[in-house]
Computed example of a mutant assay.
Amino acid sequence: MGLSLICMFLGPTLIYIAFSNQEKALYIPLLILSLLICGLAVYLAFIGLRTIMDSMFQQSSS
């Protein structure tokens, strides 16, 4: 969940930086990287929430 939180702030920040520098040569790679980081944030959030929910509602095997 901590990595997800970092990615949730880093991704939109990089998107803002990419869109504010559209005339630069690294515009497209930075935009692709930032979109991948945003996707990673969503993925990590789902994995973290699933882990938390599994630990809370785990069935007892006895």
Rank of each mutant, 00 (worst) to 15 (best):
F46G: 05
L36C: 13
L40Y: 04
L44V: 04
I52W: 13
M53A: 12
L49N: 11
T51D: 14
G48V: 07
T51V: 08
I52P: 04
Y27N: 09
M53E: 07
Q22K: 15
M53V: 12
A41H: 03
F46P: 01
Y27R: 05
A41N: 00
G48Y: 08
I47C: 08
P29T: 00
F46L: 07
L44T: 06
Y27K: 08
S34I: 06
V42P: 01
L33G: 14
K24C: 05
R50V: 03
L44K: 03
L26I: 07
C38I: 07
M53K: 12
C38W: 05
Q22A: 12
Y43S: 09
I52Y: 15
P29F: 00
L31M: 15
Y27S: 11
A25P: 02
M53R: 11
Q22F: 13
L33F: 08
L49A: 12
F46D: 10
P29Y: 01
A41W: 06
I52Q: 14
I28N: 10
Q22V: 11
Y43F: 14
L31D: 03
L26Y: 11
I47M: 11
N21I: 01
R50I: 06
A45L: 14
Y27C: 12
L31G: 05
A45G: 04
I52L: 15
A45R: 07
G39C: 07
L49H: 09
G39W: 00
Y43E: 11
P29M: 02
L31S: 00
G39I: 08
L33A: 06
L36M: 13
C38S: 10
I37G: 06
L26V: 04
S20K: 14
A45Q: 11
G48S: 15
Y27E: 10
T51W: 10
V42H: 00
N21L: 09
F46I: 10
I32Q: 00
L30T: 14
L30C: 05
N21A: 08
R50W: 09
G39L: 10
R50D: 12
L36F: 13
L33C: 10
L26A: 08
L30E: 03
T51K: 15
L35W: 03
C38Q: 02
L26F: 14
F46C: 04
F46E: 09
M53I: 12
K24T: 10
V42Q: 01
L49M: 13
R50A: 13
A41M: 00
S20G: 05
L35V: 12
L30Q: 04
P29K: 02
A25N: 02
G39T: 13
I47H: 11
L35N: 13
L33M: 09
T51N: 15
A25Y: 06
I32G: 03
G48W: 07
E23Y: 10
S34D: 00
P29A: 03
L44Y: 04
I32P: 02
S34R: 01
G48A: 15
I52M: 14
L30W: 00
V42T: 10
E23R: 15
R50H: 13
L40A: 14
E23W: 11
E23P: 04
V42C: 00
T51E: 14
L31K: 01
A25I: 07
L44H: 05
S20M: 13
Q22R: 15
T51R: 15
F46K: 12
Y43P: 00
N21V: 02
L30H: 00
L36I: 15
K24V: 07
V42F: 00
